[in-house]
């Protein structure tokens, strides 16, 4: 295997800033013998493609991001991100902590507009529509978002939580529609069997994993065009995680999913494409299978081998 001394060297570095630490690791890595030790052939076979975006035709693309930059006050946290997301499949966004994964998907959902010190530039196309020109509320109704920590509305029942998108946007439904939407989406979120007898209890009484599936159900109920998930399983135990992963694998057949994850194993298990972010830049974006076997960038390779992050 690769040099075991790396972790020790890591600990010698100053711990002030993770990004500095990572940069320093790369510095050291230049001196280390690269992957070729393990598989001499890989280095030669490295594909030239670093960003698969251009290979999706217009019709295959659901969301297209051009030159996206995000600034928090004066710091540029995302640097000219260009990425297209396909209509079919699950895209995993991974990268070390603080690289800007959450910032990226929050930019898609226009969540940064809640914070006045944040500035977002660039172009986002959802289907054929430039969504940067639409009001944020309209965009958010079409793009679902699931957060790291399960956050059902504590004042609402399970039933109301599924309908929360309609309640919160003032869309009126009759009783029959409500029942249909609730049943359909709880089933889609693999939650129906567990909660069908207590639909009118508070959503916060559910377990963490159930709550997270409830949050997925309430996004699905809005018939969103894309589903964004920000580390949806990082607050859950392994069994709940597996359930969510199974759910996502089924859902991705119906709806494009973009999921942030810390967990490379998870990305390799359930994603079709993987994007690797590092220090606010998109380093590599490719089919998961290709990226996990023959990464085209050294930094991706180092990340996948668990050298940082």
């Amino acid at each position: 295997m690769i040099e075991t001394s790396t972790p020790n060297k890591l600990s010698n570095l100053n711990k002030k800033d993770p990004s500095q630490k990572q940069a320093a690791v790369f510095h050291k890595m230049k001196r280390l013998k690269p992957l070729s030790i393990r598989k001499p052939s890989i280095a030669k076979k490295r594909p030239q493609i670093k960003n698969i975006s251009q290979q999706f035709s217009h019709a295959e693309t659901i969301l297209s991001i051009t030159d996206l930059c995000v600034y928090f006050s004066a710091t540029k946290v995302l640097k000219n991100i260009n990425i297209n997301f396909p209509k079919k499949g699950l895209v995993a966004i991974m990268g070390p902590s603080g690289c800007g994964k959450s910032t990226l998907i929050r930019a898609i959902n226009r969540m940064h507009e809640l914070d006045q010190s944040t500035n977002v530039t660039g172009k986002l196309m959802l289907g054929n529509q430039d969504i940067t020109t639409l009001p944020a509320m309209a965009v958010r109704q079409r793009i679902g978002m699931v957060f790291q920590r399960p956050n059902p509305f504590p004042n609402m029942t399970i039933f109301q939580n599924v309908l929360s998108g309609y309640i919160l946007t003032g869309m009126r439904l009759n009783k029959k529609q409500k029942n249909e939407i609730v049943i359909e989406n709880l089933k889609k979120a693999f939650l129906w069997d567990e909660v069908k007898d207590r639909l009118h209890e508070r959503g916060t009484f559910l377990s963490g994993g159930q709550q997270q599936r409830l949050c997925i159900a309430r996004s699905l109920a809005m018939q969103v065009d894309v589903l964004l998930l920000d580390e949806p399983t990082s607050a859950l135990d392994p069994i709940a995680t597996t359930r969510i992963e199974n759910l996502l694998q089924t859902l991705k057949k119906e709806i494009p999913i973009i999921m942030v994850t810390h967990n490379t194993a998870q990305a390799s298990r359930i994603s079709d494409y993987t994007a690797f972010l590092y220090l606010g830049e998109l380093i590599e974006y490719n089919k998961t299978k290709i990226m996990f076997t023959v990464p085209s960038d050294k930094r991706t390779e180092a990340y996948l081998m668990g050298r940082f992050g």
Binding site: M111, L114, N151, N155, L168, R218
Partner: peptide, 27 residues
């Protein structure tokens, strides 16, 4: 009130007014 719950309301496409009336004040 946890910020995440309020963010969730906005993320569902709620206006500030609806977020206040349907989530913040009831809680």
């Amino acid at each position: 009130i946890s910020n995440e719950v309020i963010e969730a309301a906005f993320a569902m496409g709620a206006s500030f007014f609806k977020t206040i009336m349907k989530v913040v004040l009831p809680i």
